[in-house]
C-alpha cells in the first residue's frame, strides 16, 4: 500500500505581516519612557500595598444608609443623562447618516458629534460644575453631551446598514421624507438602537460613579471625600457598594438587551 503524501504549500509571511509586528513593537518601545514604566517600583514599595490594604479591612458600613442614597443618586444621574442623550441621538443619528441626508448635512453634524464624543465625561463635568454649580445636575449634563456624541454615531451606523428596499417601498406610495424615516428606517433599526442605548446606560452608571470626583454628586463624591480624608474603612465600604450596584445594573441590562436581539 502506498501512501500519497502531498506537498504542503510553502507558507511565507508577507512583508505587511513583518511590518505590522515591527510597528507594534516599535510603538511599545517608544511609549515605555513616556509612560514612566518602572515595574521595580511595585516591588520596592510592595510594603505600602500591604499597609494600605490593611486600612481597608474591615470595611466600615456604619454609614450604609447614606451610601445607599448616594448610590441611588448615581444611578439617577445615569438614567437622566442617558435618556436625554437617547432623545437627542434619534434625530442627530438620522442627520449623521449618509443614506438619509445630503453630505452638507451629515458632514457638519458628524463633526459636531465627534466633538461631543472626543471629550471625556469628566472634562464636561468640570465645565458644567462651573456653569450650573456643584451637584448631580452637572453630572447629568456631562453624561448627556458625551453620550449623545456616542449614541448618534452608533445610531447612524445602524441606519446606514439598514435595508434601503423597504424605504423605497414606502417612498413609492408618495410618503414624505419623515414618513420614510418613521415607517421604513426606524422599525428596522429599533432593536439595535435599544440595545445600544441599554449598553450606554450600563457604561454611564460606571462613569457616573467617578463624576463625583469633580463635585458632580453621587457615590463618587463620597468616595473621593473618604479617600482624601484617609477613611480607608469607609472607602472600602463605598467600593463594595459601587461594585454591587454596577454589577447588578450590568446584569439586568444584559438580560434586557438579549430580549431585543
Amino acid at each position: 500500500m502506498t501512501t500519497i503524501t502531498r506537498e504542503l504549500p510553502a507558507h511565507r509571511h508577507s512583508n505587511a505581516w513583518y511590518l505590522g509586528w515591527a510597528t507594534i513593537l516599535g510603538l511599545l518601545v517608544w511609549s515605555w519612557e513616556g509612560a514612566g514604566m518602572n515595574p521595580s517600583l511595585l516591588l520596592r514599595y510592595g510594603g505600602n500595598v500591604v499597609s494600605f490594604g490593611k486600612g481597608f479591612f474591615p470595611p466600615d458600613f456604619s454609614d450604609w444608609r447614606m451610601f445607599l442614597e448616594e448610590t441611588a443618586v448615581t444611578i439617577k444621574i445615569a438614567v437622566w443623562g442617558t435618556t436625554l442623550a437617547i432623545v437627542c441621538s434619534v434625530p442627530l443619528g438620522i442627520l449623521c447618516s449618509e443614506n438619509m441626508v445630503p453630505w452638507y448635512v451629515h458632514q457638519p453634524v458628524r463633526r459636531l458629534m465627534d466633538v461631543f464624543r472626543a471629550i471625556n465625561e469628566m472634562v464636561y463635568a468640570m465645565l458644567f460644575v462651573v456653569i450650573v454649580g456643584l451637584g448631580p445636575f452637572a453630572g447629568v449634563m456631562a453624561l448627556w453631551v458625551h453620550t449623545t456624541g456616542v449614541l448618534a454615531k452608533l445610531f447612524a451606523e445602524a441606519v446606514e446598514a439598514s435595508d434601503p428596499r423597504p424605504v423605497e417601498g414606502i417612498r413609492a406610495t408618495g410618503a414624505t421624507w419623515l414618513q420614510e424615516v418613521v415607517f421604513g428606517v426606524v422599525p428596522q433599526v429599533l432593536p439595535l438602537w435599544i440595545s445600544y442605548s441599554l449598553y450606554r446606560f450600563e457604561s454611564n452608571v460606571r462613569s457616573a460613579t467617578v463624576l463625583g470626583l469633580v463635585g458632580a454628586g453621587g457615590i463618587g463624591q463620597v468616595l473621593w471625600e473618604d479617600v482624601r480624608g484617609f477613611y480607608y474603612a469607609q472607602t472600602a465600604a463605598v467600593m463594595v457598594f459601587i461594585i454591587v450596584a454596577v454589577s447588578l445594573i450590568d446584569f439586568l441590562s444584559q438580560r434586557l438587551r438579549r430580549v431585543f436581539q
Binding site: R165, P166, E168, A172, T173, A175, T176, P187
Partner: peptide, 28 residues
Amino acid sequence: RADVGFVFQQFNLVGRLSVMTNVLLGSL
C-alpha cells in the same frame, strides 16, 4: 407617486411591521 403603485421584485415590505400596517402605509 400616490397615483402610481410600485411592486418590487423583493416585495420591499417593512418586515418588522404587521402585514396590516404595511398595507395601511399605502394611504400615506
